[in-house]
Design a protein around this nucleic acid. Structure first.
Ligand SMILES: [Zn+2]
Ligand SMILES: [Zn+2]
Ligand SMILES: [Zn+2]
Ligand SMILES: [Zn+2]
Lengths: 146, 146
DNA sequence: GCTTGACCTTGTAGCGACTATAACCTTCAT
DNA sequence: ATGAAGGTTATAGTCGCTACAAGGTCAAGC
C-alpha cells in the first residue's frame, strides 16, 4: 500500500527529475519560467511534482540542447513533435540550419587554430621585450600603400 | 594653421577611432568602462579625444579579440606588453591555453556535426508522425539493462 | 541666424542560457 | 527535537557587447 513513498515511479520532485535527466533544478525552473515546460503540478506544500511524461519532455529538450540548438529552436521542435501531422520538412530545416552553423563555426575555429599555432611557434624569446607574439599583436598596420 | 580641423592626424573623436579600428563607439566606451582602455582626454565640450597611441592600443585589443581571447586575457596581455622585462613565458601560456581551448571546441563541434549529419540523413518521411529525427530526439532511454 | 542632420554625451536595459545568493519553508532520519 | 537535505521565491550576476532614450555639440547649407 506504499502509495506516497519518496521515490514513487509515477511522480518525481524537481531534484529527482534533475538527477534523472542530468539537469539542475534551477535550470528546470528556468525552463518553466520561459515556457519550455508548462507549469508543474504542486504538492500540498507547494513542491513541484513531475510525471514520466514531463520527464520525457525534458529529455527531449536536453537532447536538443546537446545538439547545440537554441531554446527557440527547441520550442519549435517541441511544437512540431506535438503535431503529428506537421510536415517533416520543417524538422529537417531546423536540423539542417544547425548543421550549417556548426560547420561554419568549425571553419572559423580552424582558422583561429592556424593563427594561434603560427603565433605560438614564432616565439623563443626570454622577455616581452623581444617576444614575437607581442610584436605580432602590436604590429601597427602599414600606412595605406599606394 | 588648421590646428583644430575635423580630421587631424594627431587626435580623433570616438567615431573616427571606431572607423579606424573597426570597432563601434559603444564598444570603445565599454572598453573604457571596464578598464581595458584608460579614460580618454576630453574636448571642451566633453567629447573623447584619442591619440595614435590609444589607437594602437585599441588595435592590439581587437587583434586579441579576433583570436577569441576573453577580455581578461586581453587585459593580461596588455599588462605584459607594457612590461618589457616580463617573462615571455606568460605570453605563450595565454596563447597556448587559448589554442587548447579552440582545439577542444573544434572537437566538440565535430562530434556535434557527425551527430547532426546522422540525424539529417535518417529522415525521408512526409509528416512528423514518421519522422526519424523527432523519433531520435524523443527516444526514451532504455530502462536500466541488468 | 537658423535649421538640419550627423555626431557626441550619459544612463539604463536587454541578449542567451543559465548560475549564484539570500531568506525562508518542508520533509525525513536520527 | 533537531539538523541536514532539499524545496520555494525573488533578485542579481555572468560575457561582450547592443539597443534604446533623452539630451548636448558641431559643421554645413540656406
Ligand atoms: Zn538538410
Ligand atoms: Zn614570446
Ligand atoms: Zn605552447
Ligand atoms: Zn523527418
Amino acid at each position: 500500500m506504499k502509495h506516497h513513498t519518496t521515490a514513487a515511479r509515477d511522480h518525481f520532485t524537481i531534484g529527482q527529475l534533475a538527477t534523472l535527466t542530468g539537469t539542475k533544478p534551477v535550470t528546470i525552473r528556468y525552463y518553466e519560467r520561459t515556457g519550455l515546460l508548462s507549469p508543474a503540478n504542486r504538492s500540498a506544500a507547494g513542491y513541484r511534482l513531475y510525471t514520466p511524461n514531463e520527464r520525457d519532455r525534458l529529455d527531449f529538450i536536453r537532447r536538443c540542447r546537446r545538439l547545440g540548438l537554441g531554446l527557440d529552436e527547441v520550442r519549435a521542435l517541441l511544437r512540431l513533435s506535438d503535431d503529428r501531422a506537421a510536415p517533416c520538412r520543417q524538422v529537417d530545416a531546423i536540423i539542417h540550419r544547425q548543421l550549417e552553423q556548426v560547420r561554419e563555426r568549425i571553419r572559423d575555429l580552424q582558422s583561429l587554430e592556424r593563427e594561434l599555432e603560427r603565433l605560438e611557434l614564432g616565439c623563443q624569446a626570454e622577455t616581452v621585450e623581444a617576444c614575437k607574439i607581442i610584436e605580432a599583436l602590436s604590429r601597427r598596420d602599414e600606412p595605406t600603400p599606394v
